[in-house]
Design a protein around this nucleic acid. Sequence first.
DNA 1: GGGCGTTTTGCAACGCGTTGCAAATTTTAT
DNA 2: ATAAAATTTGCAACGCGTTGCAAAACGCCC
Lengths: 332, 332
Amino acid sequence: MAITLKDVAEMAGVSRSAVSRTFTEGASVSAKTRKKVEAAAQSLGYQPNALASSLTTGRTKLIGLIATNFRNPLFLEVFDRFTLGLQDRGMRPLLINMSKETDPTEPVKLLRQYSVDAAIVASSTLPPQFARAIRDAKIPVVNSFGRASDAPDVDVVGIDNEGCGRMAAQTFAARGYAKIAFLGGPEFATSTQDRLKGFTAAVAETPGLSMTHSFADDYTFSAGRRAMNALLSNPAEAYFCGDDVISIGAKSAIEDAGLEVPEDIGLLGLNDMEMASWDNISLTTIHQPIERIISHSIDRIMHILNDPNAAPESHSFACEIRERKTLRPLSD
Amino acid sequence: MAITLKDVAEMAGVSRSAVSRTFTEGASVSAKTRKKVEAAAQSLGYQPNALASSLTTGRTKLIGLIATNFRNPLFLEVFDRFTLGLQDRGMRPLLINMSKETDPTEPVKLLRQYSVDAAIVASSTLPPQFARAIRDAKIPVVNSFGRASDAPDVDVVGIDNEGCGRMAAQTFAARGYAKIAFLGGPEFATSTQDRLKGFTAAVAETPGLSMTHSFADDYTFSAGRRAMNALLSNPAEAYFCGDDVISIGAKSAIEDAGLEVPEDIGLLGLNDMEMASWDNISLTTIHQPIERIISHSIDRIMHILNDPNAAPESHSFACEIRERKTLRPLSD
DNA sequence: GGGCGTTTTGCAACGCGTTGCAAATTTTAT
DNA sequence: ATAAAATTTGCAACGCGTTGCAAAACGCCC
């Protein structure tokens, strides 16, 4: 069927090894055989079979890319950057959709069946044990958007969620909001928990601040809307939402109730996805440096591949406020 | 390193073939050897190596999924549904990002190196020759969101773009708009061309209608905004935009200029992505049945895999208007 | 031209499973 | 119990490349 090594070898009048070596970086072939082989390969349209070669080399250049939030606009950028970044380094992303399930058994099986070189868990909602299960199967893994740790047992790169929580509360305080609230994403997510922790701590440290908290059960417009509707009977002055889309849903509920943002209720999002800056949305939000998170994640993967015994590291990037129109201006 | 067939065979005290057959659908193994083998496999944690087996079976269950519009929110649904649909059928998507390039040589090489069983070109902007190049490499392919044809040389599933163009013009006419316009997506895309064709035809057939046309150079908010800004010196009464995000960008430009939608200018989108229905956007748009397009695409792929000589088919789904708030109500 | 050190080359085995075939075993029929 | 049919099993070759090793070819020096 397809053209193989052997075909090229015969046509070029050399051994199969010679052909193999011409296609192997840094192998020993004389200029003249290389020439012959390349000519033959060219004329036959030969493409080395990456999977066959992986059998002996043990490298497939396949990277499992596991994600959960397929419907969240943030992931447009995430997929775009991961695929491009991996492609640039000669790796191929094998995409695994875990939005329906959180049990690691199946995906781990799959990663092994396809002998991926490594896996990236790109999710802020999968529990830490998910990535751990992959590591336990001896597959190098980094958990992007995961929970930072001082003593990580798996590589993690993400943001400083606690810091974001603090920043949110401080931002509210600086703008004169006193009765503030945390409207997180799914409660079980570590990112939500950590942000709440930071938020709560900052409130405790700042005189005059009081808080309540609640959660949206999904990173969606309708979940945000639902959650805010439930709060409107006795609303806080400002809400720190777990995500931009949740914020937008919340805003919709607020406006439907005849209230205004930011006059009646302030809203602070998180992520800074592209649409947050669109002027009919114009959401004040905490920017997450996705580009850096992803390029660092890929760097870690490549690093671990070169040094399989590298100790796991945890890296969290700081975030910053993007001032737009859903929060009162700074009070002076 | 990893557990192999041989290990299991030794532990179970049977031949390698026996083990292989236990894991092969419909192979002949007695109940008692199967039991022994399964016990051994279980205790060793054996996972058959899909890539090694692909060598002899010729099937990898890998499907190349090629996309271009990684930043368009429509693709959230596209990726979600494709990955889930393929997973359900035991296939694995190998994701290829072609947003930076349109030359098929590299991706075709890649598809061959990884011996994908088939490829899906999920793009309305890649030219038809792209999918054709894959077919020429003897890789089964379907072009989702591609250009329909009476005599397709590649499987295509998409929407009736010409019909959408007509529908847009007729919708405008029915609402009393006379001076209407087409604000397409990228001009080179066949989808844009076909819609323009249908739009133009319907204008010609309908007395009292006049039209102009122009293009946004990308499926983005800023491209839509830019394009509309250029038109505002002498605007039409209503615009049929090539995409919802373009519409949203256009709306932003209109409102910035102090005009109102739909009072001053009507806007009709296309795609009906989730955010179009959010009430702070509330875009009247033409709904594209993505779910059906994708499930039909996957069905075609599976069909071609079962019958490699299946003649290419072209299937286009009808679209329908989703009435919201960017167009005047029906005049009676 | 002979001797010595390098490079290049091919052989053959290997990686992990699959499969045609013939031998061995089990089942069924008599 | 025996013969015939049906099933199950193992052997060995194969799929496509890679790689350690020894042999061959090359280059260099005297």
